[in-house]
């Protein structure tokens, strides 16, 4: 709404009479934007701006007074080991999950893309089920499955004689982040699978047929013909998967809350703890948490820009998509 008023009120002052006229002519179009812009402005644009301002404050709770302290929060953050470790863990987690998830789902996609495979829709649905399951439920399922006390997976490992003692997958500081990475890949592979299947739709059927007539084997077609065609999509899929992996808060908060001993505390879990769930008699530090959020958001944005440039470059190389 504010954008509309802004345009209209400034319009008479505009030197180009044409702009004012065009804006007045489009007045109904701006009405269409009102509900969407209210939501977009209130819950996306405003928080983006406000976070930057909050990050310059000392602010100990939503009712408390705000005090301007400049860049002090940022200076403290850069020396805060918990922050630096959480930051590092977020990107480590992304580096561990994205390639694995993309590879597993690509293999599934290539197998399921066969039109003559009668059950492929059923298989796709099964792989997709963890995606539609809320993380709080996933947390309970994996706590049961991975329980060191008579959990089915430990039962299997012990019966097979692989381990002498039950493995505490979620309770060991060394294992916990990798266990959660595995769970994350299991939960989200279904989405990446859909992306790859969409990419495979762009490969013309004639290519498969021509290759078959020439007596080329299926795996050769896949590696030398299909993969190069869908390669440009890999960058987009990688970007979307990386963003998802950086936003892993729900899974980690509901399984381990960042523990044990902060071993699985990623960036958003850190922000949540500082802002909403301080422990040991600490007060919420909303300014400090906002500063952490801004740094994290900046890192994500840099990553995004980096990848978008890569997408552009990949598309330019491939004339079919240009």
């Amino acid at each position: 709404m504010s954008a509309t008023e802004l345009h209209i009120s400034h319009a008479p002052a505009a030197t180009r009479q044409g702009l004012a006229a065009r804006i007045w002519k489009s007045r109904i179009d701006y009405l269409f934007l009102v509900p969407g812009l209210l939501i977009f402005g209130a819950f996306i644009v405003w928080p983006l701006i406000a976070s930057e301002y909050y990050s310059l404050l000392t602010w100990t709770g939503f009712g408390a007074a705000k005090k301007f302290v400049g860049l002090q929060n940022y200076r403290e953050l850069l020396q805060d080991e918990f922050f630096l470790n959480a930051f590092k863990r977020s990107f480590l987690f992304t580096l561990a999950t994205v390639p694995l998830q993309m590879f597993i789902s690509l293999v599934f996609a290539i197998l399921l893309n066969n039109k003559l495979l009668k059950l492929s829709t059923l298989f796709r649905t099964m792989i997709f089920l963890p995606v539609v399951t809320p993380v709080a439920v996933i947390a309970i399922v994996i706590a049961l499955m991975l329980s060191p006390f008579n959990g089915p997976i430990n039962g299997l490992l012990l019966d097979a004689g692989l381990f002498e003692r039950a493995v505490d997958f979620l309770g060991s500081p060394q294992l916990v982040l990798w266990t959660l990475a595995g769970v994350f890949v299991w939960k989200w592979t279904g989405v990446t699978l859909i992306y790859w299947l969409a990419a495979l739709q762009t490969v013309p059927d004639e290519l498969y047929e021509a290759a078959k007539l020439d007596g080329v084997r299926t795996w050769q077609v896949t590696v030398f013909v299909v993969l190069p065609i869908i390669a440009p999509f890999a960058v987009v899929i990688g970007l979307i998967s990386a963003i998802a992996a950086l936003n892993v808060f729900p899974l980690i908060q509901s399984t381990t809350q960042g523990g044990p001993f902060f071993a699985s505390e990623v960036m958003e879990v850190f922000i949540f703890r500082i802002a909403f769930a301080p422990s040991g008699g600490m007060v919420p530090q909303l300014g400090y948490a906002s500063a952490a959020g801004v740094l994290f958001g900046l890192a994500v944005m840099i990553l995004t820009i980096f990848q978008i440039v890569a997408v552009r470059r990949a598309r330019r190389k491939d004339p079919a998509n240009g």
Binding site: F40, I44, V45, S51, Y54, M267, E268, G293, F296, M301
Partner: peptide, 20 residues
């Protein structure tokens, strides 16, 4: 502007959203 905000993490916006 919309494209620019497409990938903003939720941890970035949650405090202002709650304050608002």
């Amino acid at each position: 502007l919309m494209l620019f905000t497409l990938f903003i993490p939720q941890g970035y916006t949650i405090i202002p959203v709650f304050e608002l």
